[in-house]
């Protein structure tokens, strides 16, 4: 019920009623963008935005910096693990 899917805003259809076209994995449909427009982010600026779409509404702008940070953290955890494994192996040989 609460699931959402990431898509990219490709065009504004009706600026007055805050309707835009979103591309979700190649499928295009109209979405309401009322939740991603504010004083500092105009209707026009929404074009190109990656958003989370839920029941025909763009509910949140995907924060690409935060996405990158989360992925970096995950990668770091992986690297750290690899390093620890290596250390353990070395210890075994010593």
């Amino acid at each position: 019920m609460c699931l959402g899917i990431p898509g990219q805003i490709t065009a504004i259809v009706d600026a007055a009623n805050l309707i835009a076209t979103v591309d979700v994995g190649g499928v295009k449909r109209e979405v309401n963008i009322a939740c991603i427009v504010d004083d500092v982010h105009s209707v026009e600026q929404c074009v190109g935005d990656w958003v989370l779409v839920h029941v025909g509404f763009a509910m949140s702008r995907l924060d690409e910096e935060e996405a990158a940070r989360t992925l970096a953290l995950l990668a770091e955890l992986g690297d750290m693990q690899a390093e620890l494994d290596m250390m353990r192996q070395m210890e075994g040989q010593a």
Binding site: D38, M59, L62, D63, T70
Partner: peptide
């Protein structure tokens, strides 16, 4: 907040207003 790429600390102002 693990899901910071989607979840802002303060939530969605326009949604909360509606």
């Amino acid at each position: 907040n693990q899901y910071a790429r989607i979840v802002p600390q303060a939530g969605n102002a326009a949604g909360l207003k509606a």
